[in-house]
Nucleic acid binder design. Sequence first.
DNA 1: GCCTGGCATTGAACTAGGACAAGAAAACAA
DNA 2: TTGTTTTCTTGTCCTAGTTCAATGCCAGGC
Lengths: 192, 192
Amino acid sequence: MFDRINTYLIRHANLTVEELGYFNSILQHKTFPKKTILLHEGEVCNFEAFINKGCIRMYYIDENGFEVTLQFAIEDWWVSDIASFHDQKPSSMFIETLEECELLILSPQTKESLLAQVPQLERMFRILVQRNLSSLQGRLFKTIATSAQDKYLDFIKRYPTIPQRVPQHYIASYLGISAEFLSKVRTKLLKK
Amino acid sequence: MFDRINTYLIRHANLTVEELGYFNSILQHKTFPKKTILLHEGEVCNFEAFINKGCIRMYYIDENGFEVTLQFAIEDWWVSDIASFHDQKPSSMFIETLEECELLILSPQTKESLLAQVPQLERMFRILVQRNLSSLQGRLFKTIATSAQDKYLDFIKRYPTIPQRVPQHYIASYLGISAEFLSKVRTKLLKK
DNA sequence: GCCTGGCATTGAACTAGGACAAGAAAACAA
DNA sequence: TTGTTTTCTTGTCCTAGTTCAATGCCAGGC
């Protein structure tokens, strides 16, 4: 049950066996069926979850019902609305399971005490957020600067396993194009 | 010289007078004329700089010379390509002064020793990056989901002082629209 | 005082991608 | 198996925003 996260932790922080054990001991293990909404817009996000198994999508919806997928997350990823979690303020996004999911969960309180007990995790989480930030920067650039086709090609190159796991129209909403147009882009690519 | 940053530090971390003094003591104070490129694409970013005075722009350029402004930064902001700075790998962005700038600079080494001396700063920097991430998430959403006009209105509301300080075509490149179209949007708004 | 180069504006022609509608094809449930 | 829902495709028409080119504007250097 803790194999994945321990492998992850060993790679990203060097903890003693006791620290690792403590980390494991405060995690809450939960499973959720497919299509469970873990966080609604307007709610406060009270989890930071490590995905042990499954696939999750984070997305926004605007006034007109238009959806933008912010992120797909699979095994070994952390999911949370960090801003909401950290400041305990209402979130403006949704988080939803796309498959049955097995999660290891930190609450704001357990995370606090974890950081108090194992201060060097502060650094691990910082680096995690930094990487996230940096990849989001690159994505914003591509979203603005490149064509639908290039964004799609880039996506399947970067995340080769995702297209097999999630409906195509969610990928469109990640790329910032309509589902119909993505379909057209794909047929054009297949003809070559 | 350290007024601004100390006000900032007191607000964001609670340091003792000695810690504050130590922080100040390792900062490198530098000024740069307008239009100085502080970081070129391909270079390793070796600064994390607090803006004491001035205005800075971070941007990407693609193969065709198309520019995307990632960020404007003014007084009280930190600027750096965090990924490049942290991993000491080549950056893919440019950082340029738009006005004469007065900066307080950390190098990778001084930042390391600062964090070693004053561990609770680890948290301050993490929160800084978290806020950044969260606002970039919101921006990506708006970039994808809203019209040019709404993006512009949102921008001037969020950053009311920026339009007076930077050329308009840079704002267009921040919003992800052409300079010409921004001009058309503006004249349309003025007619109302 | 005048020239020069960066900015902003405007218009005309064009295009990438959107919206809508309708059908086909999977996926799922019972 | 059959009905139901969700997903994917394809075509037609449409529009927000681009590109290009021309013009004017002003700020700064000498």
